[in-house]
């Protein structure tokens, strides 16, 4: 704790048409830690997450107010290219979504965006990314088979490898284990903890046990508002707000 903020939101508000998805959220996200976002369905945690790397940019009727600072620079600033923001802030989605390409090409996809790469460099970075995602040993002999033929858990780790390949500084995860079985979930969780040592991870989860296991800090959202944020053990054992208490004891959600 007490480390520098990698990301920080200042009075962030996201509206869809006349509905408010995220209301006035100011949150510090420290570097090289895992931050879990919890809260009932529709509480705005996913919307908040997607606002961090401007994933909602193209969507019609979505309006963002306030600031999201990445290393002190507002990613919604007038001269900021959202494409470059997303290169630094990667994302893993709820459902595994590998491209219908080979395992190798899935991981190389992000690396090829910048232009041609030397094959040897590409090979090395693909292997490295698959290794970090804990998938290398399982797929090294079939890199050129389709990524969609893998099991669900492997697919999700492939998506993680794909995101890691472009060496992002932050990884956003939107309920990454919700479509996985318990064993695959466990593997993914240990990877997330591992990744938290070298980069900044923000994970949205419905699974309170998961938040507890993987994160250093936890933020509780309710009705678009940030209710409480604290060190994970602190928040789970001594919640300060009545709403947090109620949620943690299964009062709603």
């Amino acid at each position: 704790m007490g480390s520098v903020s990698k990301l920080r939101t200042v009075e962030l508000t996201v509206r869809y048409g006349d509905k408010i998805g995220v209301a006035d959220v100011s949150l510090e996200i420290p570097e090289r830690q895992v931050l879990a976002l919890i809260g009932p369905s529709g509480c705005g945690k996913s919307t908040f997450l997607r606002a961090l790397n401007r994933m909602n940019d193209g969507a019609i009727g979505v309006e963002v107010a306030g600031r999201v600072e990445l290393d002190g620079v507002d990613v919604y600033g007038g001269d900021v290219d959202p494409v470059l923001v997303r290169r630094r802030v990667g994302m893993v989605f709820q459902r595994p979504n590998p491209f219908p390409k080979s395992i190798y090409e899935n991981v190389a996809y992000g690396l090829r965006i910048g232009g041609r790469q030397k094959r040897s460099v590409l090979n090395e970075r693909v292997e490295h990314a698959l290794g970090r995602a804990g998938l290398w040993d399982e797929v090294k002999d079939r890199l050129h088979t389709s990524g969609t033929d893998l099991s669900g858990g492997q697919q999700q780790r492939l998506c993680l490898a794909r995101a890691l390949a472009v060496e992002p500084e932050v990884i956003l995860m939107d309920e990454p284990a919700s479509a996985l079985d318990p064993i695959a979930t466990e593997r993914l969780e240990s990877l997330i903890k591992e990744l938290g040592r070298s980069l900044t991870v923000v994970i949205v989860t419905h699974n309170l046990g998961q938040a507890r296991r993987v994160s250093e800090r936890t933020a509780f959202f309710y009705l678009g508002k940030l209710i409480e944020v604290a060190a994970t053990s602190e928040l789970f054992e001594h919640p300060q707000q009545r709403k947090t208490q109620a949620y943690l004891t299964g009062g709603f959600g």
Binding site: L84, R87, N97, K101, I113, C159, A163
Partner: peptide, 27 residues
């Protein structure tokens, strides 16, 4: 072509055009 794939491409820092040519078109 599923929306998921377009989002995955965007999230990797690809422009919409890049995703259209290298993900959506092949699919």
């Amino acid at each position: 072509v599923p929306k998921d794939l377009r989002e995955a491409s965007l999230a990797l820092g690809a422009s919409p055009l890049h995703g259209a040519l290298y993900v959506v078109f092949p699919a």
